[in-house]
């Protein structure tokens, strides 16, 4: 069952939720979600696992922890969403833009130990992490940043990259 898998990864028990809706009411992103946090937890509780994993909710969650802070049951939807994203990614159920974002991010962490923001954004555009309209919209911004000298082309890489890769290999199969 997905709910118990979520609990195992996140330490949060979705079954403890009593559906008060405080999370959804507090969620800043609710207006673009398929299901609000409360409803997603409900789907988890009654075992609609496919709907949960295919919903855009978990990818939209901005990790602002507002729901976590206010939850009367002291359970964290934010952490559940992390766990759900772990599971969905393992099953390759992931929107295209998100996939590009997360893959590039992980690549940076594993290759350099850090995120090199300027390079990251370039790679993201190449990987299709941005819509064409967004690229057009953001082009002015890019020029401005360049002029201000904010874009940094020097790559920063840590000595312990090997260690990071080792840690990754140790944990990558924790989620099944």
């Amino acid at each position: 069952m997905l709910a118990s898998q979520v609990q195992k990864i996140s330490g949060e028990n979705p079954l403890a939720c009593y559906q008060c809706g405080n999370c959804t009411g507090s969620c800043p992103m609710e207006f673009v979600m398929d299901y609000g946090p409360r409803r997603l937890i409900h789907l988890l509780q009654i075992g609609y696992d496919d709907e949960v994993l295919k919903s855009n909710t978990i990818w939209i969650c901005a990790s602002c922890y507002n729901c976590t802070y206010r939850c009367p049951r002291k359970i964290s939807f934010t952490r559940m969403a992390f766990a759900l994203k772990n599971i969905a990614m393992k099953k390759n159920i992931i929107p295209k833009k998100c996939k590009a974002f997360y893959e590039t991010f992980l690549k940076h962490v594993l290759n350099y130990g850090r995120l090199n923001e300027s390079l990251f954004i370039n790679e993201l555009v190449l990987k299709g992490g941005k819509d064409f309209s967004e690229i057009v919209r953001d082009i002015n911004l890019g020029i401005k940043l360049w002029r201000k000298g904010k874009l940094k082309m020097k790559i920063s890489k840590i000595d312990g990259v090997k260690d990071i890769v080792k840690l990754y290999n140790l944990t990558k199969d924790v989620i099944k």
Binding site: Y102, L106, L115, I164, V174
Partner: peptide
Amino acid sequence: NCCGATAIPSINVEFSYLL
């Protein structure tokens, strides 16, 4: 090294703790 931000926990919670 990178703290993992919200991206790494989304990929693998356990790995993000280690970072």
